[in-house]
Nucleic acid binder design. Structure first.
Lengths: 363, 363
DNA sequence: CTGAAAGCGCTAACAT
DNA sequence: ATGTTAGCGCTTTCAG
């Protein structure tokens, strides 16, 4: 009773193991391992026999065994701290994830996703578990935050991490983003100025996001460079409700003060804001021009079609995954994806400012 | 040189193992194991010491080691065969995933997600890898298909599976769905009939989906029961483009034939269709009523707000995860979530039919 | 060129 | 009540 054969017999028809393959090929398990991992020191005929045996048994190495052995789990993690509702309106994550997967899949890596409500501590717990249970080789972070506590946490947990976006204060965490980040907002401002707008408002995302601050700065700089002072700036929360509230506030001003164009920090807010304006009696783009950010398919769907700033989230996801492989020293065939800088997609929600006795609005 | 201590020394400051905890607590590894797994046969003081040691070392069991040992990976898989673009417009998956995660997280289970384009074979390969590499304990399927090949595949792979939706031909795969599936479409039909509509069209999803056939049947039955014959039925593909095309076709008919109301199989199509109609010169809801399906947040965002049939995808996800735990014999504290039947959410995109000389449209 | 054997961290018999 | 130990399936020295 060697145990080995006993076991094999007992489990007939169950998952084959490397031992089964070795037995069928008439070689040792280490020979099989070498063949499957492309190590050399195996003769062509032997390699051939092993390959055939593996194919016949439909065997492939157990991911868990490999992970236990080599400390490589072949999975990367991602933690999304968002409510289902926001997640559903904003495909930001979804697009990123598609890109990540595109890059992971060919390398036989998986994506372990954790969606953890926004309650404090939940996010940190998720990262801790990922690290302490050694479930993933690294994590991909998004939504760079001001004073981001995650970097320190992950460093402490010794969990490799890649950030999608602009890191806070040149934190040494590897980050991927397109060059020319300011191009989008600048183009939008020029676009609006070209239409004659002079009172342009900005509705930003949550205050704790790095891109909120960054884009607002670009916005203000771009206007200042043209000798104009920025219009009102409100900060919102990425939700439709937030956008409606912001719009209400902006349009409550009297005609002389009221913005004739509004830049929103994402498409969801832009669309919601656009319709809020319409409900208040303002036509888009006749009375008010609206610009979004992200270029989600949603913008094509609505009426009028949304002018927006495109950023290629799928490519960003790919780049993040590629960067992760770099960090882990994993050779990955794919060429490093190029990420285009954000650029303006002019559609129907922007137009010339009306000089006549137009704005009759409010309601 | 026992090796054990040698190792521990060598790796100071690295991840602690169960042996480190045992050493610190002055007990055997099996004692630690028993404490951590709630097995009995451990005295209170010992248990206490172990817990303290584990806490001090911030130790928690390695997921891979546990998986290798017990054939339990503490992860469930999900394969989404969709293009990023569709994924981005349709948060169907995202909502489901939120629900699944809600249920998985407390049990310390993870979700391994695979997004694989729609090219043939990609999906099957993904399931095969999940199974053969023993990466997950089971998989959750969505979008029940006619003649679904996945059931047979998964059975063959011996991979436990739960379907979200209506299984094809009472396939014995465990499935979760709300009772009263027909309630939504019926309510929508009644709602439209109440507004005086008599020519109601239906734009369904892809032909290979079970719910496509099911809902169409309900639609036709509901009308037949009122002594009416169904209007035109087109099948589309869940995309905005598809909806625009369908709308164009429906509105091309002359006024006597033209539908006065259209039911769409999802909200994305409904919104796209609504705006297509508007571009063709038809006002919604004055000239045409539109109803969607899913009750995505999107429907609140657009103008006019979309009347739609709500189904609680988050709850469905939770139920699916719970069912998976049942299948795996894993005790899970949460009470089984209840799923409400689909129901109508009347908003602004539906209204009374115009009898006057209204339809001037087309363009 | 090939094989034997030592673990990776953990759990569950099986001792004690 | 607690400890010892044999694997889970794999990779990797180290010997032949």
């Amino acid at each position: 009773m060697t145990g080995r054969t006993g076991r094999t017999d007992r489990r007939r028809s169950a998952k084959p193991t490397i031992a089964d393959v070795a037995a069928l090929a008439g070689v040792s398990v280490s020979a099989v391992s070498k063949v499957m991992n492309g190590r050399d020191g195996i003769s062509a005929p032997t390699r051939q026999r092993v390959l055939e045996a593996a194919a016949k048994l439909r065997w492939s190495p157990s991911a868990t065994a490999v992970a236990l052995r080599g400390a490589r789990t072949r999975a990367v993690g991602m933690v999304a701290a968002r409510s289902p509702d926001v997640l559903a309106t904003d495909p930001h994550f979804t697009l990123l994830i598609s890109g990540i997967e595109r890059e992971l899949a060919p390398a036989d890596y998986g994506l372990l996703l954790h969606i953890v409500g926004e309650e404090p501590g939940a996010e940190e717990r998720a990262y801790r578990r990922l690290a302490e249970e050694r479930r993933v080789d690294g994590v991909i972070l998004t939504e760079s935050r001001i004073g981001d506590a995650r970097f320190e946490l992950l460093r402490h947990l010794r969990l490799p991490a890649v950030l999608v976006g602009t890191p806070w204060q040149d934190d040494p965490i590897p980050a991927v983003q397109a060059g020319g980040q300011d191009a989008g907002v600048r183009a939008a401002v020029d676009h609006l100025l070209g239409f004659g707008h002079r009172r342009i408002a900005y509705v930003s995302g949550p205050q704790d996001r790095v891109h909120t601050v960054f884009r607002r700065q670009v916005f203000e700089t771009a206007l200042a460079e043209r000798g104009l002072r920025p219009g009102r700036t409100l900060s919102s929360d990425f939700t439709a409700q937030g956008a409606v509230a912001a719009m209400g506030e902006l349009l409550a001003a009297d005609a002389a003060e009221r913005p004739t164009a509004v830049l929103f920090a994402n498409d969801t807010m832009a669309v919601a804001g656009m319709n809020a304006a319409r409900r208040l009696g303002f036509d888009v783009p006749r009375d008010l021009s609206v610009v979004g950010y992200d270029n989600l398919p949603l913008g094509e769907l609505v009426y009028p079609r949304l002018t927006t700033i495109a950023q290629d989230l799928v490519q960003l996801g790919r780049a993040a995954a590629a960067a992760m492989f770099g960090l882990l020293n994993i050779p990955h065939a794919q060429a490093p994806p190029t990420i285009h800088p954000p650029h303006l997609v002019p559609r129907e929600s922007t137009g010339p400012v009306l000089t006549g006795p137009a704005l009759t609005g409010a309601g």
